[in-house]
């Protein structure tokens, strides 16, 4: 009796918690509302099944409980083909209802619209850096093996397309609102995952390859970046900030950033000042020019 009641209460309580608890997803700030819709569909289908099974179980426990001294009227029925067939068909229909929108959403997720702006996120233990393609709209080639203290992104200095790339190190990234962006993801040490809960999208960054996803920011505001793939002791502290601006704010911010060419020149300048103070000046300068 009590057992049946508790099983029913578990079902009712779960639904009540779902409807009334304060814990629910963050307000969406990207174009991925379709994913949220798919989740809602899945909630309806699975929720119905969950409640139905628990109510049925509770009912059975109450109705067919053993009573001392009462001869139970137990049915001896090894199987029931037609019932099992109908249950199979019903379940299959439910699965199709959930899977179909999911596959469509995935198709959208992996199809980057033409004309999307590209930018690159570079992750390392335990910070985020960003690279924007600059005026030519193309990111210069890069390679982990080319990374030096002066060139933390490993950009190929011989690639002319890289010179105007805008570099943002340990600072906030700004994005213009309502323009689709393709996010190229690169890690230089271990796995990381670029994750902004409000954008709903995420993807692992794998050293040795470049991964990607795309989205369109739809709401102005500041959004926190979290790392969603365990990357060592600093994993939980690997935070960043994405600021979604309207167009004019974005352009003003972009104008203040330094390009790869500028930072390289500055680094070289800095180096020659440092070197001026050392004695073996001539040999060292050769090295610098060779670079």
């Amino acid at each position: 009796m009590i057992t049946a009641l508790i099983i029913i209460l578990v079902a009712v309580g779960s639904v009540a918690f779902h409807l009334m608890s304060p814990w629910w997803w963050t307000p969406i700030a990207s174009n991925w509302g379709f994913i949220d819709t798919t989740i809602i569909i899945t909630f309806w289908v699975t929720g119905t099944v969950f409640v139905a099974i628990l109510f049925f179980t509770g009912y059975c426990i109450w109705k067919f409980r053993h009573r001392e001294g009462v001869k139970a009227d137990v049915e001896y029925e090894p199987e029931n083909k037609s019932l099992e067939t109908w249950l199979t068909i019903g379940t299959t229909i439910g699965v199709v209802i959930m899977l179909t929108p999911g596959l469509f959403a995935w198709k959208q997720f992996i199809t980057v619209p033409e004309g999307a702006d590209e930018f690159e996120v570079v992750a390392q233990q335990w910070q985020w850096s960003y690279r924007l393609p600059g005026k030519d709209g193309v990111l210069g080639k890069s390679d982990v093996r080319k990374i030096t203290p002066e060139n933390p992104f490993g950009i190929n200095a011989d690639d002319p397309k890289g010179k105007d790339d805008v570099l943002i190190e340990s600072d906030d990234l700004h994005l213009p609102i309502d323009r689709p962006v393709k996010v190229l993801l690169r890690a230089i040490d271990v796995l990381h995952d670029f994750y902004v809960p409000q954008f709903r999208a995420k993807m692992d960054m794998v050293p040795g390859t470049i991964t990607y996803f795309w989205f369109t920011p739809t709401k102005v505001g500041n959004y926190e970046v979290l790392c969603a793939e365990l990357c060592g002791v600093g994993h939980h502290a690997m935070r960043g900030m994405v600021v979604v601006d309207n167009d004019s704010d974005y352009r003003a911010w972009l104008a203040e950033q330094t390009t790869f060419g500028q930072s390289l020149a500055k680094a070289q300048q800095q180096k020659s000042i440092d070197l001026a103070s050392t004695t073996d000046r001539a040999t060292s300068e050769k090295k610098v020019s060779a670079q």
Partner: peptide, 10 residues
């Protein structure tokens, strides 16, 4: 369901 996994994974 692959698309739903995107926001929920990890």
């Amino acid at each position: 369901n692959v698309a739903i996994d995107v926001p929920l994974s990890d």
